[in-house]
Design a protein around this nucleic acid. Sequence first.
DNA 1: TGATTAATTAATTCGCTGGTTAATTAATCT
DNA 2: AGATTAATTAACCAGCGAATTAATTAATCA
Lengths: 216, 216
Amino acid sequence: MTNKGRPAQNGKNADDARAALIGAARKKFVSKAYDKVSIRELAQLAGVNSAMIKYYFESKEGLYKAMVTEVTGQVIENIKLHLSSGKFDSIEEFFRSFVEMIKESPEFPLLMLKEMVLNQGVCREYFIERIGFKHMKVFDQVYHHFKDSGKLRADVDPLLFRMSLMSLTLHPWYMRELIGTMEGVQYDEAFLEKMIKHNTQLFQHGCFNEEGKNDQ
Amino acid sequence: MTNKGRPAQNGKNADDARAALIGAARKKFVSKAYDKVSIRELAQLAGVNSAMIKYYFESKEGLYKAMVTEVTGQVIENIKLHLSSGKFDSIEEFFRSFVEMIKESPEFPLLMLKEMVLNQGVCREYFIERIGFKHMKVFDQVYHHFKDSGKLRADVDPLLFRMSLMSLTLHPWYMRELIGTMEGVQYDEAFLEKMIKHNTQLFQHGCFNEEGKNDQ
DNA sequence: TGATTAATTAATTCGCTGGTTAATTAATCT
DNA sequence: AGATTAATTAACCAGCGAATTAATTAATCA
């Protein structure tokens, strides 16, 4: 019971047609609707036979879920890395960390949008379970952090604070391609920095005590 | 050449299985991906035979387009009614008018999202042509209105102003169902009013001259 | 070398969906 | 009443795509 059987041999060396399939799924499923992506299309891009999907993932949905697991896994890592504590010196630092997090998993916002907002019926529950609450919690923590430190104005509504935070941090990524084509704007360092400053401006003056501000 | 032929007889009286089909399309296509909605499903919800789709709209896509035409038609009317001039006494008035506009065509934000942002739509070009530029122009006009009236601070970036305006006005509608289930919040009068005030707060202090403010 | 088993494929099955058709119904007009 | 025509339906068809199968390949072990 050691090393029998034909070894995996996609392309060069080791064990993975599996990895190739997940890679293909990452590309295709992010930019196209679930049903518009055929297993033949995926197999072709991965350079393997479509039956390999059954072999490794049981079904198309199995492959999709494996891909979601991989992406959300990375995102969870990045959230831990950049946003874990929820303890930020300033709201600007939060906006900057959030951008940093997204930059490392740029497929994520659209994937989430498709799963959670659109009822594609692929694995909404699974996705929400895996990432939804954890993700939402970040905004929650930010609210409480600033609330507890006494920097937030008393009249700021918790839900609306979180909602507007979400809107301003996520929506621009949904619009990325559109903004790119219509306005000719790339999401480069300079632009993202301007966005961070702009959002900071809005929140700093809109939700925070004037006396409590410590930088700029 | 007057009144021959069998009269329309869906349910009660007059001329419309057609209307029933568009109604069904409005419900189904907004909450599900295009390919996940079958013509039988639509016909069943409308209470007619699926062949009626061919009869009235030539095809599934024809029905979809007819639905888009109806919704966007209403939206254009509502934009004219509530947002046409772009001349608002305050940013709060703009937020309120925008909410008013959306309330009368609540399917619109998600429909637009699917067509323009996600590649799930069927008639992206058609949709953009019909509503895209006209709609974007509203945010543009708001910027210029306040800029020209000297109320905006000099350092406010035009694109970021428009983007954040879009984010704050549209994103909450994408999240509507999610917020409903996760937070138990309904988008009723009271909540929408709070949202308007909150957004106003952000912009009033974040983008406008302090001396130029005239209410509250 | 031959048994064993993992990896891979070509070919086939089968359910679903959009589309089509031909027949039926129910009204109006002459 | 009989012709005409719009509205409606049941039944059917073709095509696609996911799933499945049965066979084949290529390695390891004994």
